[in-house]
Write a protein that binds this DNA or RNA. Structure first.
Length: 222
DNA sequence: CACCAGGCAAGTA
DNA sequence: TACTTGCATGGT
């Protein structure tokens, strides 16, 4: 079994650390997690810049901002009406349990001060937050040891014969989480490396090529 | 012009 | 349950 540790080493040796998630604050990670749904990061970055220009990138301010105004600000990220609603739903969750006198940092620290499973289920109740967005928030904002699966991850695993077409999100997540130590820094770097590999070598209509660092790893038996 | 990008929920049969 | 469709901007 070509173990996942070995694949990690290959990727890390090849690409080096990826420094994810690019953001200036925990709150920015959370907002970015919603904005990046089915959208490239460059467009998300523009949307975040719009919010920063107006000094709106804070939990209380965004929560108070009318949805229509928020939608205009995040336009470059695409699906802006939808994402404005989804963000609002998420902000409601973060605010509703919090003491209004607390700072953003305190509110978020309190929010993440709970076990990962409960938090994940809570996030998944929010309309517009699915498994990937929830896990991204848990891992990259909350530093919880949970593995994020995205289309790049799926495509990389599929192309290299590590999983079958029918493998779903949960199965792939379990594959990583039962075969690796539950370390948030490892999961952070590993997922970022898989995305990096996907962008460079596993784009949607690109064939496998010899230059891919995983070109000849052994099949993985689950 | 077509196709793609760090998904998700709602609709249909 | 298992597909399909809507959402939308900006880069290649």
């Amino acid at each position: 079994m070509a173990d996942l540790q070995k694949i990690y080493k290959i990727l890390h040796d090849h690409f080096g650390p990826q420094h994810w998630w690019p953001a200036d604050s925990v709150f920015e990670v959370i907002v970015g997690a919603v904005l990046t749904q089915n959208t490239n990061w460059q467009n998300v970055s523009r949307a975040l810049d719009n919010l920063k220009e107006d000094n709106l990138l804070s939990l209380p301010l965004l929560h108070a901002l009318p949805r229509e105004v928020l939608a205009e600000k995040i336009k470059p990220s695409g699906y802006y009406n939808l994402k404005a609603r989804r963000l609002k739903n998420l902000l409601d969750l973060l605010i509703c349990e919090a003491d209004p006198n607390y700072s953003e940092d305190k509110i978020l620290a309190d929010f993440f001060n709970e076990d990962t499973i409960s938090l994940r289920q809570k996030l998944l109740t929010v309309k517009g937050i699915g498994p990937e967005t929830a896990d991204s928030i848990l891992l990259y904002a909350g530093e919880k040891p949970i593995f994020v699966i995205d289309t790049y991850t799926w495509r990389v695993l599929l192309r290299h014969g590590l999983v079958g077409e029918e493998t779903d999100y949960t199965e792939m997540q379990e594959l990583f989480m039962t075969n690796l130590p539950h370390d948030s820094r490892l999961f952070n770097e590993y997922h970022a490396l898989l995305v990096r590999l996907g962008k460079e070598f596993c784009k949607k209509n690109n064939p496998l090529c010899d230059a891919c660092p995983l070109h000849k790893i052994e099949p993985l038996y689950v």
